[in-house]
């Protein structure tokens, strides 16, 4: 039992650089600031621009997700957010993203960002339609709010008296687990995507025609000439189908070989940018979360040492 606990502690709570955690915070906060201020830059059908549309839908269509029920529980079971509530939550999300970015009352800001972001996105997912775009940054913000993500590289750190300030290379027992948990979450998400294809359709999914159809239909709908170009090259599309499954299945290798993290971050970035340019599916929100895969402090501090 003791040994199990020791292994648990060694795995999750081994001291790790606070700078790595702080860069994850900067990365996801900056992205969410862009997403909330200029959503059309990173989303195709952003909920952030459709508050009035959702608020105008009839009550009979409103079926709130669990998190929204929890957040609105103090206002009674029948409570349904109005346009004003959604606009206020949107404003809070912008302010919280900005203050998380600069690290001002960092953990409170991150918690406020998680709540307001979940309120708005969760509301948009309470009418029978949902997208996977915003899940990853929401989970990362939640994890960062529970950890010392503002201990360095933040206004909070600067506000401390000089004697109490931590150097950039400082480590902490709570600096490792949020990044590790996020890596697990990403790995499970990609494995889930691969399994849904393989269990639902089997190897037929890799026949080339499947991806060819997805590419062509989306490329025509969203006017993506590059998608049409790819869809017309069968051998290339077939190879891309195999690559997709290989990427999604092998992503979990980063859990056992952390040195592969930057490589998977690079390949994943290319993967999602490729999907954007060919099918206009905006999975940009995954990219700031790849910050958890990169050993920033090892790279940056070695350079400045």
């Amino acid at each position: 039992m003791t040994s199990l606990r020791a292994r648990w502690e060694a795995y999750w709570f081994r001291p790790a650089p606070l700078l790595d955690l702080a860069i994850c915070r900067v990365s996801v906060s900056a992205f969410l600031l862009v997403m909330t201020v200029a959503p059309w830059l990173v989303l195709t059908i952003p909920p952030w621009t459709r508050h009035a549309e959702f608020a105008a839908l009839p009550d009979s269509m409103y079926d709130p997700i669990l998190l929204l029920r929890v957040l609105t529980a103090p206002f009674g079971e029948e409570f349904r957010p109005s346009l004003l509530h959604l606009r206020i939550a949107h404003g809070v999300a912008i302010a919280a993203a900005a203050s998380s970015l600069v690290g001002f009352f960092t953990r409170t800001s991150l918690a406020a960002l998680f709540v307001s972001f979940s309120f708005v996105v969760g509301h948009s997912h309470s009418y029978g339609e949902f997208h996977h775009i915003e899940t990853m940054p929401a989970i990362l913000v939640l994890l960062l709010a529970c950890a010392p993500s503002g201990a360095v590289l933040s206004l909070d750190a600067r506000r401390r008296p000089a004697s109490g300030r931590l150097p950039l290379g400082a480590t902490d027992a709570h600096a490792r687990w949020p990044r590790l948990v996020m890596t697990w979450v990403l790995a499970m998400a990609y494995l889930s995507a691969a399994l849904s294809k393989m269990l639902g359709s089997g190897v037929e999914w890799l026949n080339g025609t499947t991806l060819q159809r997805y590419l062509m239909v989306n490329a025509l709908y969203w006017d993506r000439p590059l998608g049409v170009w790819f869809a017309e090259r069968f051998a290339l599309v077939k190879a891309l189908g195999w690559f997709t499954i290989a990427f999604e299945v092998t992503f979990l290798l980063v859990l056992f070989r952390p040195r592969l993290g930057p490589l998977f971050a690079l390949v994943g970035t290319a993967f999602h940018l490729g999907i954007w340019f060919t099918m206009k599916a905006p999975f940009f929100a995954y990219l700031p979360c790849y910050a958890v895969l990169v050993p920033w402090s090892r790279w940056l501090l070695r350079r400045t040492a």
Binding site: W8, A170, T171, R176, T304
Partner: peptide, 27 residues
């Protein structure tokens, strides 16, 4: 995910058991 940071090696105080327990619940 590697703890070996070159240069400054300062460490914050060891995390108390209660905070590790709370973090374990989140994990």
């Amino acid at each position: 995910m590697t703890p070996d940071v070159p240069g400054e090696g300062a460490r914050t105080e060891a995390a108390p058991r209660s905070s590790r327990r709370a973090a374990s619940c989140v994990i």
